[in-house]
Simulated scan of single mutants.
Amino acid sequence: MIMWPERKRFAVTLSFDLDGETAWESSSLGGRRLSLLSMGAYGRRVGVPRLLELLARHEVRAQFYIPARIAEIDPEVVRSIADAGHGIGCHGYFHERVDEQSAEQNWQILRDSKALLERTIGQEVVHYRAPLWEITPDVLSALIDLGFKTDSSLMGDDRPYLVGGAPGELLELPVSWVLDDWEQFAYSAEPAMGGVIETPDKAFSLWNAELEGMRAYGGHFILTMHPQLIGRPSRLLMLERLIERIGELGDAWWCTPDDVHAQWRAGALELPLHPY
C-alpha cells in the first residue's frame, strides 16, 4: 500500500477531457453537422464556466486534458482554466487515435500540440492523456523524449506506477472505465454512440462504491469527466454531492498530476515499475 502524504488513506484527482468539437470537426460524419458540433461546444461554453465555479467554491484543483485544436477554437477558455489554477495536459490535436497514426505522425502531433498549448497559457505543459485512452509504445517513447512527466491513459493498476524506457522516466496515473462519465452519459443517435443515458443517482452510486474501494485499498481515485457531459445541470449537482462526500471522509489527499509527480520526485512515494 502506498503511503500517501499527510497520512491520508487514499488519493483523489478530478480530471476533465475538454474535447469540445474536435472529435466531430475532423470527421467526415460531423464536420458540417452543426447539431453534433454544438454538443461539443456546450462543454467549453457552458460546462467549463460552471465547473470552474464549482471547483473554486470547494477549493479543489483539478486537471484538464485538452486537444490542441481547442486552443485555436477558443483560447480564452483554455486560459480561464489555467488562470483558475488548474492543470493543463495534452490530449492530441484533433482527438485522433494514436494507433491509427504512424510513429512520425504521433511525434509531430505531440510536439505541435504541446507547443500550441504552452503558447496559449504561457506555461510548460508536461502531462498527457491519449485520446480514447489508446496509447502505443512509440507514444510512450515520444513522451519521454519530449519531456513529459506523466501519462494518464493506461489501466494496469489503481495506484500510480512507472512506465517507459529507463525506470522512473514516466509516471503513469492509471484510469478505469468505471470512473468515466462517458460510459454513463454519452449519447448520439447518428453516429450511434452510447446506449442508455443513466441517471445522476446511478452514476453517483457507482462512483461512490469505487471511492469506498479505493479508500479501503489505499488507491488513487481518478475520475475522468467531459465538460459537455458532466456540465449538464443535474450532473453538476451530483458531482457536488460526490465532492462533499469525499470531504466528509476527511482522509483523502486531493492532488493533481503535478502534485503526485512532485511527491514521487521528492522520494515521498515509492511506486512500482510496470511495462504498460
Rank of each mutant, 00 (worst) to 15 (best):
R7W: 08
D17W: 05
T22E: 01
G31R: 11
G31S: 13
R32K: 13
S38R: 13
R45K: 11
G47M: 00
V48S: 00
P49W: 06
P49T: 02
E53M: 07
E53H: 05
V60R: 09
A62Y: 02
P67G: 02
E72C: 04
I73A: 11
P75Q: 02
E76H: 01
V78F: 08
S80K: 02
A84M: 01
G85K: 04
I88K: 14
F94V: 02
D99I: 01
D99H: 06
S102Y: 06
S102G: 13
A103T: 06
N106H: 07
Q108A: 12
A115F: 08
I121E: 04
V125T: 14
V125W: 04
Y128F: 15
A130R: 12
L132I: 14
V139G: 01
S141M: 11
L143H: 03
D158G: 04
D158H: 01
R159N: 10
G168Q: 14
V175L: 06
S176T: 13
S176Q: 02
V178Y: 05
L179P: 11
D180Y: 13
D181G: 01
Q184V: 11
A186S: 14
Y187K: 11
S188P: 05
P191E: 03
G194L: 07
L206I: 08
Y217W: 10
G219Y: 03
H220I: 07
H220N: 06
H220T: 04
M225V: 07
M225A: 01
H226T: 06
Q228N: 11
P233G: 03
P233F: 13
L249G: 14
D251W: 14
W253M: 00
W254H: 13
D259K: 13
D259E: 12
A262N: 11
G267C: 05
Y276F: 15
